[in-house]
Amino acid sequence: MPDGLRGEVISVVQRRRRWTTEQKLALVEEAMRPGLSVAGVADRHGVSRSLLFEWRRQAREGTMPGLVGAGPELPPSLVPVRVVGEPLPRPQTAALPCPERPTQSGATLEVVLPNGRLLRVSEAIGPEVLGRLAAALET
């Protein structure tokens, strides 16, 4: 080769990574922590920022492949509900931040999961989506 011209030999072809549902949800949860950003979490774990934003949307909407509800339909189940006049004390564990957004009806439901996480959703949310979100956040 003439002076100044050099070539590069690429001998390794990177393959597409496969992420389990648990790994995706862990990254989504990490990106939702106060003080952290989606870009920072994505860069730290070597995942595309747009992919992490997509996983976040899928988790929020309950459409992530591998979540409860994907595949054979599960029979509906009932969960205990307690109606109280005053708000429950906040759990000591870190809950996912949920920015206050106006809803069409204005009513918001708060669900305290057995692991201590607090889930805030509009009363207009579909029961199947709520079930998938709760199952995803229980892991």
Rank of each mutant, 00 (worst) to 15 (best):
M1W: 08
M1T: 10
G4F: 08
L5K: 13
G7F: 14
V9G: 11
I10K: 10
V13N: 07
Q14E: 15
R15T: 13
R15N: 11
R16Y: 04
T20L: 05
T21V: 15
T21E: 12
Q23Y: 09
Q23M: 13
K24W: 07
A26L: 14
A26H: 12
A26G: 09
V28A: 10
E29W: 13
E29H: 14
E30A: 09
A31Y: 03
M32D: 14
P34M: 14
G35T: 14
V41L: 09
V41R: 03
V41W: 01
V41F: 07
A42C: 11
A42L: 09
D43Q: 15
D43T: 15
R44Q: 14
H45L: 05
G46P: 13
G46H: 15
V47W: 11
V47D: 12
V47L: 11
V47E: 14
S48G: 15
R49Q: 15
S50K: 12
F53Y: 15
R56G: 13
R56P: 06
R57S: 14
R57V: 10
R57A: 11
Q58L: 07
Q58M: 08
A59M: 08
A59Q: 03
R60V: 06
E61S: 01
E61K: 01
G62N: 03
G62I: 02
T63W: 10
M64P: 01
P65Y: 05
P65W: 00
P65M: 02
P65N: 03
L67Q: 08
G69P: 04
G69A: 03
A70R: 10
A70W: 09
A70P: 01
G71Y: 01
E73N: 06
L74P: 04
L74K: 11
P76Q: 11
P76M: 05
P76T: 09
L78K: 08
V79S: 01
V81W: 00
R82H: 09
R82V: 13
V84Y: 05
E86V: 10
P87G: 02
P87T: 01
L88R: 07
L88A: 12
L88I: 04
L88P: 01
P89N: 02
P89I: 00
R90T: 04
P91Q: 00
Q92V: 07
Q92C: 02
Q92I: 02
A94W: 06
A94V: 10
L96N: 00
P97C: 04
C98I: 02
C98T: 09
P99N: 05
P99M: 06
P99K: 03
E100N: 02
E100R: 07
E100D: 11
R101Q: 05
T103V: 02
Q104F: 04
G106V: 04
G106W: 06
G106I: 02
A107P: 00
T108E: 01
L109Y: 05
L109M: 06
L109C: 05
V112W: 05
N115F: 05
N115M: 04
G116P: 03
R117C: 02
R117D: 10
L118N: 00
L119M: 09
R120W: 00
V121E: 06
S122L: 03
E123W: 04
A124Q: 12
A124L: 12
I125Y: 00
I125L: 12
P127M: 06
P127T: 08
V129C: 05
V129H: 09
V129L: 08
L130N: 02
L133K: 04
A134Q: 12
A135R: 00
E138C: 09
T139C: 04
T139E: 06
